[in-house]
Every structure is written in C-alpha cells, then in structure tokens.
C-alpha cells in the first residue's frame, strides 16, 4: 500500500502496545467478504478502490462528490492510535491515519435542520463475495449513523490508512469511519455516501437485531449484550493462547472526552 504523509496526534492513546499489523489486517469483521475473521483478508482484493468518490448530500449547503484523492490531498492527515473494542468481546490497538470527520462536515456546511449523519458502504456484489449470497447475513448495503454532535466530536475520524500506509481493502479501503468510544461495527467501511438528515437513520445491525444492537452502541461494560457479557475483553495478540481478559472501560476508556455527549441519557435504554 502507498505510504502516507501524516502528523502524530495528541489525541492518541500512546500508552498502549500496538496490535501487530498482521493481526490488524488478518482478523476482521467485514461481512461483505464473508463471515469468518480470515475471510476479508482472503477475498477483499477483488474490490476496486480506485477511482472512488464519496457522495455527500442531504441537508447541507454544499453537497457534492468528493474524489478520495482530493480528500486526502486537501486534508491534514493525522496518526490516531485508538483502542478498538468489538461488540464480540475482543479488542485491538490500531494506529489509524485519517482526518477529523468534523473537517469534512464543516466543508459542506450542514443546515440547522440536520441532526444526524447517515453513512453507506459500497454495494457491488460482483466485487464483494459476501453480497452475492442468496441468504444475506445483513441487508446490503451496510448503513450506519451518528448524531451530528457525535460526528463533530474531535475523536471521530475518517480513516484512509493504518500503520503509515493506505488502508488495506479488508480494513475498509479507501475510506472508513472510526469512532473509538463505540463498538467496532459502528466504524462503517468503504464509504460511498454520507447524508445529513433530520431523523435518526437506520443502522444495519439494529435493523438485523434491534434488541441486541442499538443506534448508539457506546462501549459499556454495564450494559450486556443480551447473549453475552460486555464486562471484559480479550486483547488480540497479547499472550497467544493464554491471553487474560481485561476489564472493559466505559466508552472504551474515552469517557473523559465523550461522556458529556450523553449526559442525562439512560444508557440502558439508548444502548
């Protein structure tokens, strides 16, 4: 992958040991390429990520189509080392390269009526083997969403790389969302469309199982998944077979920065 020019960000979690590049790129959930963790690394090469444009529309003053190369050129790329907590109970520490989602949002000037941001993944069955199945695991295309103030938070980024180079396909090339205080599935991959809307948009996993996956999906050790506990997690690559569970932190350890976004909300109800 092509090397990127970037600055180090003070918003990184620098005290954590990075998960190896091998594990970050070979243990993925990207159901468009199959449900096994190793399937994306095996099948994602079929996705054509260049040329690529992201359509930005909805309640904005300046809608438009952004070519990925222009987005990268006109943004100041930063390295953000973030913890990533999967809803399944494992976690990684990943050095992402990207830019604040807020930068893009400011460029397109949302109208006052815009309250939410909706995201959409590419839909290309010929290039994505998991989208070809007659019994789809999810309703394609994958969709996600954030409240506008969540999307404007400085920790929320659009990533275009990791480990100093352009994103590998299995990690969501060419551009993906990273919201480190939420479960990994909120980080929608291979984004083709970003829409500003008034009402809370639908999201793929809450459509699939509304009682298990909510719109917010904030990492929360005190609100279990209905079928498994969220109290602890296993850090990938830490101790091989004998990896010890570690406690999961509220908002994945980013509570100081983000908890105020949810003050007064019942996090059991808005899970």
């Amino acid at each position: 992958a092509a090397p990127l020019t970037f600055e180090k960000s003070p918003l990184s979690a620098t005290d954590e040991k990075l998960t190896s590049l091998e594990d970050v790129t070979h243990y993925n959930n990207y159901y468009e390429f199959g449900v096994d963790k190793t399937a994306p690394a095996a099948h994602a090469h079929t996705l054509k990520t260049s040329p690529w444009t992201v359509k930005v529309d909805g309640l904005v003053a300046k809608p438009g189509e952004f070519a990925i190369d222009d987005l990268v050129k006109t943004s100041t790329l930063e390295e953000r080392i973030y913890r990533m907590r999967c809803v399944e109970g494992w976690s990684m520490v990943i050095p992402w390269i990207g830019f604040p989602l807020a930068d893009l949002i400011k460029r397109v000037e949302p109208q006052g009526s815009a309250k939410y941001v909706a995201f959409e993944t590419v839909y290309r069955p010929p290039e994505m083997v998991g989208q070809q199945s007659a019994f789809p695991v999810l309703d394609w295309p994958y969709v996600e969403g954030l409240r506008l103030d969540e999307a404007m938070h400085p920790l929320a980024i659009l990533a275009v790389g990791l480990y100093g180079e352009a994103l590998p396909n299995q990690n969501g090339a060419p551009i993906r969302l990273v919201v480190p205080w939420k479960y990994g599935f909120k980080g929608i991959k291979s984004i083709t469309r970003i829409s500003f809307v008034e009402k809370q948009p639908e999201t793929s996993w809450s459509r699939q199982a509304p009682d298990e996956y909510g719109f917010y999906a904030n990492v929360n050790p005190n609100v279990d998944h209905p079928r498994w506990s969220q109290k602890t997690e296993r850090r990938i690559g830490e101790g091989g077979l004998f990896v010890k569970r570690r406690p999961t932190l509220p908002f994945n350890g980013y509570a100081d920065q983000v908890a105020q976004l949810y003050s007064g909300m019942d996090l059991r109800k808005f899970y």
């Binding site: 070979h26 243990y27 494992w90 091989g240 077979l241 990896v243």
Partner: peptide, 13 residues
C-alpha cells in the same frame, strides 16, 4: 499449533 502460536490472531477463541 496453539502452543506454537499458529492459530491466528485469536488463538484461544
């Protein structure tokens, strides 16, 4: 394979 750490990224699982 487990003892030789060849069971992938999440060997325990």
């Amino acid at each position: 394979l487990g003892v030789n750490d060849q069971l992938g990224a999440d060997p325990m699982r």
